[in-house]
């Protein structure tokens, strides 16, 4: 287990290095000049050179990248003398547009996006697996057909469309849930959940349908296997057979798919926060794209990649816990 963790952590660091390097090359080789943006209008050659030096973009690309990595681990200082700005580790750069370190900006917006993503993921896994199990056990009957039809419709329904309909119906017509605005978890956990319940349901709905379909087919397959027959022959209760033996095995591929869906989950959260007018990572990024605020753009993309890579480790651990063969 320890060997596995060490190996995986080393692998993660390797992947993250590759991703940051690739991101850096992609976004800084192209002609968009972050210093020109920082310099503002009117931009004299002197102030442009000054801005270049301040941001460190006057140096060769590889030096910039090493500086970036150094900042990530140990923090760095932009400029010197009176105008110097200290950017504490983990420093992802400095946004001239916001006059703030990128890390601070992300720390303000990331919780919003993660709150949406995490809650939705929990909800979709629970309901998806439950619905899939029910429909597998009641194959061909009403619950099964209802789940399969919902899955087909759900797959084709973009989450923002569902979101808008939910806002219209539950938010305005019935007026039972709040529309928009985000309350931090640390401020009031109940309000936090209350404001997020609609986004969670909206984002979870589609994926729950897909997972129901997957769970159903996997469970049907497993229920026909020898070890399930053995378990039944041993005289175990049907409940134990289904949950402890069949479902556990059937969930292994579901977990694998979940690992692959983490990137899409983050994307879904970005769309959902927009529908519900919450200022999260996506809004920060879209803003930055509009202003060619490169430090923010690279910071957000690197963070998103890191989130997926690290979350995948968690998925892998779950995988090992589920599958007795690994």
């Amino acid at each position: 287990m320890i060997r596995f963790l060490v190996l995986r952590t080393a692998g993660i660091i390797g992947v993250l290095l590759a991703v940051t390097a690739a991101t850096y090359v992609i976004f800084y080789v192209f002609p968009a000049d972050p210093a020109r943006m920082a310099c503002g209008k009117p931009c004299t050659p002197e102030s442009l050179a000054q801005a270049r030096e301040f941001l460190g973009v006057d140096q060769p690309l590889w030096v910039q990248y090493l500086e970036f990595l150094k900042g990530l681990v140990a923090g760095r200082t932009f400029g010197d003398g009176g105008g110097a700005i200290v950017c504490a580790a983990p420093c992802l750069g400095y946004s001239v547009q916001h006059h703030q370190p990128v890390t601070t900006l992300i720390a303000q917006t990331f919780p919003v996006t993660v709150s949406i993503a995490a809650g939705a993921a929990v909800l979709w896994l629970l309901t998806g697996v439950a619905a899939g199990t029910v429909s597998a056990l009641r194959r061909g009957r009403l619950p099964d057909r209802a789940v399969m039809t919902t899955a087909m419709v759900g797959v084709s329904m973009p989450s923002y469309l569902v979101g808008l309909l939910a806002i219209l119906f539950f938010g305005f017509t019935l007026d039972v849930v709040p529309v928009g605005s985000y309350v931090p978890l640390t401020e009031n956990p109940v309000d936090w959940a209350f404001h997020l319940i609609t986004p969670w349901c909206v984002l979870a709905l589609l994926n729950a349908a897909i997972y129901a379909r997957l769970t159903r087919s996997q469970l049907l397959e497993t229920l026909g296997e020898d070890f399930v027959r053995t378990a039944r022959a041993k005289g175990l209760r049907e409940r134990t057979v289904v949950v402890r033996h069949a479902l556990r095995t059937a969930l292994v591929p579901v977990v694998t798919v979940f690992g692959l869906d983490l990137g899409a989950l983050l994307g879904g959260a970005v769309i959902t926060e927009r529908v519900f007018s919450m200022y999260g990572l996506g809004a920060l990024l879209i803003d930055a794209v509009g202003h060619t605020d490169l430090p923010v753009i690279t910071g957000v993309t690197i963070l998103a990649a890191a989130f997926v890579v690290v979350a995948n480790l968690v998925v892998d651990l779950a995988y090992r816990a589920l599958d007795p063969r690994v």
Partner: peptide, 12 residues
């Protein structure tokens, strides 16, 4: 496959 592709599409 696991990449947060939407975020990269926006960034690009």
């Amino acid at each position: 496959l696991a990449f947060p592709s939407l975020i990269f599409m926006i960034a690009l």
